[in-house]
């Protein structure tokens, strides 16, 4: 499909994807790209289509039209597990981890899956990738919790653990749906700072949605604004902040949104 060499392709390129639910157009032709090392914030008022967009990218929802390419390869309509194996990590708006496993086993399980060893029936999983798992926990700052059951973690630590699980697949692209939701201001900035460092260190492309503007404007490399399923702005933080349409559609609705 792609005429240009793969190494020049953006990590993610979304082309005109559309999705409707029973007559309601959740996404009406959305296009954007994310490049390696970049932190792209996808923002917009509630119901703008951010979550639908995420679920399309990750394979949970099949779009009605449009294509999603990962490093030039068409991944539209692939199931989530296949997309994950191609190097897309994801975190969820309500952080999901494997509650009945220890923190370490959470990451080890994700590592085994990434290496296609989930069907290993005989050798115990513990010890197969202990060092790598501990390294990931170290990077996300929760190595001290390795032996704790995941079900008992504080929410901020759950978010970090989920990030470690997502990183276990050595992703090229990290999709983070509201990575800092439910966290205090200090924790929030610490987490997004961590993501930024990791992105730089591993040349990761990061796409995240976010409600808190201090995170967006303080850390994103670029911002895409969605409203009613369409992209209304795509540019640098400063350009988007200055864009009158964004101010009208997005910030103007901030008050209304608070009431809903």
């Amino acid at each position: 499909m792609s005429e240009m060499p793969v190494n020049e392709a953006p990590v993610l390129s979304v082309d005109n994807i559309a999705k409707a639910y029973g007559g309601v157009q959740a996404l009406g032709g959305v296009s954007f790209e994310v490049r390696a090392g970049e932190l792209l914030a996808l923002i917009g008022p509630n119901g703008a289509g951010k979550s639908t967009c995420f679920n399309v990218l990750n394979g949970q929802i099949r779009p009605d039209a449009g294509t999603v390419r990962l490093a030039g390869r068409d991944i539209t309509g692939m199931p989530p597990r296949a997309i994950a194996r191609l190097g897309v990590g994801r975190t969820f708006q309500i952080a999901a981890v494997f509650g009945s496993l220890t923190v370490l086993a959470n990451v080890e399980t994700a590592l085994a899956a990434a290496r296609g060893k989930s069907f290993g029936l005989w050798r115990p999983q513990a010890g197969m990738a202990r060092e790598e798992a501990l390294a990931l926990l170290d990077q996300t700052g929760i190595a001290a919790l390795a032996d704790r059951p995941a079900a008992g973690l504080a929410y901020g630590d759950v978010k970090r653990l989920e990030l470690a699980i997502a990183l276990a697949g050595s992703p090229r692209l990290l999709l983070m749906d509201e990575p800092t939701a439910g966290m205090g201001a200090h924790e929030r900035l610490a987490l997004i700072g961590l993501v930024r460092r990791l992105a730089a260190a591993h040349a990761l492309a990061v796409l995240f949605t976010e409600h808190s503007m201090d995170v967006v404007f303080g850390h994103a490399s670029r911002v895409v604004v969605l409203a009613r399923g369409r992209v209304i702005a795509d540019g640098s933080v400063e350009a988007v902040r200055a864009d009158p349409r964004v101010r009208a559609v997005y910030l103007g609705h901030a008050g209304a949104e608070a009431r809903t």
Binding site: Q60, A96, V97, F98, L101, A113
Partner: peptide, 23 residues
Amino acid sequence: FAPFGHALRAGRDARLRAEASGI
């Protein structure tokens, strides 16, 4: 105790999370 058992429990605890990790 093998990866299979962990993947099985992972799928039970958080199916979407497990799928998103390639299980």
